[in-house]
């Protein structure tokens, strides 16, 4: 098990060195956000703040608060809806296979790898036609639709592992298609729901391209607002860093609390799962 050629201390040194690289941005992020603006000069960028100054947080919060709420209004319904749709189609594609269902599945999967630029122009035209352009509702629709492939994939891979015998015995007991779904598949896939929900939550929260092209000013999710903090005024680095931290907080909390499920989702994204 142990690489004899590399001694343990050396391994730790390497790992700690890499850890420093990984933590460096977070260190700067945090200390800069805690400094008053006067203290943010080139020469003391790495120094700890002389006084803890929370004003950049209150300023960043007052600027980002509406957008943070927008993000929540967007992410929660979109996550739930795409998980529902994914569970439904994953169920059919794993347990009710029919001729051509594999091809159909592959066709659906392709949707998760396309560069979204390639559907953006028609999408915007469409949203305008139906009056959903520049609404959070429109953005929810977009994320639900483009979340279908990954959610379907995750649920399908999850359901494949549920033995057919369980379904058959339920059918013998008179359960129909819906009954099996409700009484067997859903209860057995709670952790699947968690994985998909966390994955979608993180992805939709962090998404930028749709957000920046489909919504404007007061409808914008937080990531666009964060990007705009570096807008036409002086870049107030402390406010921007505080804003970055605020915008990242929800996904970080989810990661810290439910990291295991997050990594599961990560792996599921590689098609084979």
């Amino acid at each position: 098990m142990v690489l004899r050629s590399i001694s343990k201390p050396l391994i730790y040194v390497l790992l700690i060195a890499v850890s420093i690289f990984f933590l460096m941005p977070i260190y700067v992020l945090i200390i800069t956000s805690l400094k008053p603006l006067e203290e943010i000069t080139l020469s003391n960028m790495w120094k700890l703040p002389s006084v803890l100054d929370m004003s950049s947080y209150s300023e960043a919060f007052s600027k980002l608060a509406p957008n943070l709420m927008n993000s929540f209004y967007l992410v929660i319904p979109a996550t739930i809806l795409s998980a529902m749709l994914g569970a439904m189609s994953g169920y059919v594609l794993s347990k009710w296979k029919f001729k051509g269902s594999e091809i159909l599945f592959t066709l659906m999967l392709f949707g998760m790898f396309i560069p979204y630029q390639s559907i953006l122009i028609p999408l915007i035209q469409f949203l305008r036609e139906v009056g959903l352009y520049n609404t959070i509702l429109g953005l929810i629709l977009v994320h639900v639709v483009y979340g279908i492939p990954i959610a379907t994939l995750m649920f399908r891979n999850f359901y494949v592992n549920i033995p057919d015998e369980m379904i058959e015995s339920a059918q013998i007991d008179g359960a129909n298609f819906l009954g099996v779904f409700r009484h067997i598949m859903i209860p057995l896939s709670i952790s699947g729901f968690v994985v998909v929900a966390i994955w979608q939550f993180t992805n939709i929260w962090n998404e930028f391209l749709f957000a920046v092209t489909i919504t404007t000013s007061d409808q914008q999710p937080v990531m666009v607002a964060l990007q705009n903090l570096s807008g036409s005024q002086i870049v107030q680095w402390n406010v921007q860093m505080a804003g970055a931290l605020l915008a990242a907080l929800p996904t970080l909390i989810v990661y810290i609390l439910l990291g295991k499920y997050f990594v599961k989702g990560l792996l599921a994204g590689s098609v084979k799962g």
Partner: peptide, 14 residues
Amino acid sequence: FFPMALSFVVTGVV
């Protein structure tokens, strides 16, 4: 793992 939970926008800003 944790940077994976961050947005590319946050990464870009930092």
